[in-house]
Write a protein that binds this DNA or RNA. Structure first.
Length: 549
RNA sequence: GUCCGGUUCGUCUAGGGGUUAGGACACCGCCCUUUCACGGCGGCAACACGGGUUCAAAUCCCGUACCGGAUACCA
């Protein structure tokens, strides 16, 4: 029988990163064994389910590139089937009507109420003493006919135990005594979770149920329902939970947006990077390796590699530098600087577009790229690209935009950096970091004279008719008697200039860096000059903006 | 309370009778360097505790502690 797994979220909010990981593991397993990965939206909680939430779940899965097979199943569409199943169990004497009036919900903390009630009931009551359990069927029918409200409960056998062999946690057993006669159908006719799940999993012919460990005890109840229904239960595999620092529950209420998958999309994460990170939270291939492509994850995935202990999603509140798990951040940076340029470019494009920094002409450059620069994608034995950046020779035939992205990506952590830290490369309207101005400019007042002089020098050495053209259209070859604005020549000119002024190279370079890019950090200054281009270099060196702020 | 599960550096983890207990992130130092990263080298840092079994226990067994999950006419 071919494997069929499902991801079954309830649409009551954003997609939690823990759920996203469940989806990922289901997906990896399905692909690993050539099975199907199905999606079911468990929208039976009418009050809490929203369409918006369903949308966000779908968006999240799409972002992680976890494509599901077959049509999405909406659990609410199957309510009639769930009711029929309950009726059938009732007719077969495997369930009974419970006419006990529904308890008024205590509006306080639900969890606490449950624990409290369980504690109180301890010893005074066993799980099987419901007075309606053995009610004569004639009597039961009569009261039902008289419109008396009732819930349908499963009649859990008196002696014995449920057992199943969890693929992660091993053999599991639970005495029937420890399981109450669970409600299948509410008195308003609404089917409850455990019944709905079992019916749908049967209907969808699910072979492997892979879900969070918080369902471990539900599984015993579900096994009971399978048995009552006369269906062999699927294989179960429960996943360790993802906890907050301190081992508390990772919840939106307490931790906010950090638990939502969309946060990572919006914060400039590369989908493949976050997916890679999630895969390694609670699972390991048993080797000393961190970076896995989706294909590798699929190939290496197995239940044996899944941990039994919960994993902490580590982050420090109120610390922008460590706002989310350090390893996720590191991994994202790793992907940004090493992934094939052809795959990075569309992500950068989306970022620049949303920051209104995108120009259509960049597209012209990107089109031919995919076939043209595979060299960065060559993976070494450890799965990392062997060449980190393109060298000048490789990039020479490509245009300004690609060269710039490749140049600046090496020190970025998120895609956002392309429009934030990288803003000065793409437009004239950028800010000056006061700390950078203080460190690199105002500390050396002479620069206020020198940098405009450097601009003059550039103009004299590199200028001429070419000045009228945008820098990025200049050819690399120099006109007769005129130097091209390229690293080697720029270096010569700057070194001579520095010597004349009797100062250190760093003073000029860093001053120019701040004037040209607004910040104190960035790539080699020679390549920055080249990429910014002669025209913009000259005008920015002459600008008094930074000095006057 | 009861049932179930878990416990290796701060975090993610490898290892499952004999290891100087390995790697990654984070942190610190040095090198590289016009800056910041990257990279290279090095450092800090862990088998929850107590018994047992064994020539030998982080590893197997039993307890304890702590943590987590479940215990709904929620999902």
């Amino acid at each position: 029988m071919s494997v069929r797994v499902r991801f079954a979220p309830s649409p009551t909010g954003y997609l939690h990163i823990g759920s996203a990981r469940s989806a990922l593991f289901n997906y990896l397993y399905a692909r690993n064994v050539g099975g199907k990965f199905l999606l079911r939206i468990e929208d039976t909680d009418l009050a809490r389910s929203t369409e918006e939430s369903t949308r966000s779940i779908l968006d999240g899965l799409a972002w992680l590139e976890l494509k599901h097979d077959e049509e999405i199943v909406f659990q609410s569409d199957n309510a009639d089937k769930h009711r029929a199943a309950a009726q059938r169990l009732l007719a077969e004497g495997k369930a009974y009507r419970d006419f006990t009036p529904k308890a008024e919900p205590t509006d306080q903390n639900v969890k606490e109420g449950i624990a409290e009630r369980a504690r109180a009931a301890q010893g005074v009551k066993n799980m099987r003493d419901n007075p309606f359990r053995e009610l004569l069927s004639e009597e039961s029918d009569r009261r039902a006919e008289a419109q008396e409200p009732f819930a349908i409960r499963l009649k859990v056998p008196l002696a014995g135990k449920t057992s199943f062999d969890d693929k992660v946690y091993g053999p599991q057993e639970r005495n029937y005594d420890d399981t109450e006669d669970l409600v299948l159908l509410r008195s308003d006719g609404h089917p409850l979770y455990n019944l709905a799940v079992v019916c749908d999993d049967i209907e969808m012919a699910i072979t492997h149920v892979i879900r969070g460990q918080d369902h471990l005890t539900n599984t015993h109840k579900q096994v009971l329902i399978y048995e009552a229904l006369g269906v062999t239960p699927p294989t179960f595999a429960h996943l360790p939970l993802i906890m907050a620092p301190g081992k508390g529950k990772l919840s939106k209420r307490k931790h906010g947006e950090i638990v939502s998958l969309t946060t990572y999309r919006d914060a400039g994460f590369v989908p493949a990077a976050f997916r890679n990170f999630l895969a390694l939270l609670g699972w390991s291939a048993g080797e000393e390796k961190e970076i896995y492509s989706l294909e590798e994850l699929i190939e290496k995935f197995s239940f044996d590699g899944i941990h039994r202990s919960n994993a902490i999603f580590n982050f420090r509140e109120n610390d922008p530098r460590h706002w989310t798990d350090d390893k996720a951040l590191w991994m994202n940076a790793e992907y940004i600087r090493t992934m094939p340029l052809a795959e990075l470019l569309p992500l950068v494009k989306a970022e620049l577009k949303s920051a209104k920094l995108w120009r259509e002409e960049y597209d012209q450059e990107s089109i031919a790229l995919s076939a043209d620069i595979p060299s960065t994608a060559d993976l070494g034995a450890d799965g990392r690209p062997e060449t980190v950046a393109l060298d000048n020779r490789q990039i020479g035939s490509h245009g300004w935009y690609i060269k710039t992205v490749d140049l600046i990506r090496s020190r970025f952590f998120t895609l956002k950096d392309f429009s934030l830290q990288g803003r000065a490369y793409f437009c004239e309207d950028f800010d000056f970091d006061p700390a950078a101005v203080a460190k690199n400019l105002t500390k050396f007042p002479e620069l206020r004279e020198w940098l405009p002089q450097l601009a003059d020098r550039f103009e004299a050495e590199f200028g001429g008719t070419e000045m009228l053209k945008p820098a990025r259209e200049q050819g690399r070859d120099s006109q007769p008697g005129q130097l091209a604005f390229t690293e080697a020549y720029i270096e010569t000119v700057i070194k001579a200039f520095t010597e004349e002024k009797g100062t250190k190279l760093g003073v000029i370079m860093n001053g120019a860096r701040t004037l040209l890019t607004g910040v104190a950090v960035g790539p080699s200054m020679l390549s920055v000059f080249e990429v910014i281009g002669l025209e913009r270099t000259i005008s920015r060196l002459r600008s008094q903006l930074a000095w006057n702020q």
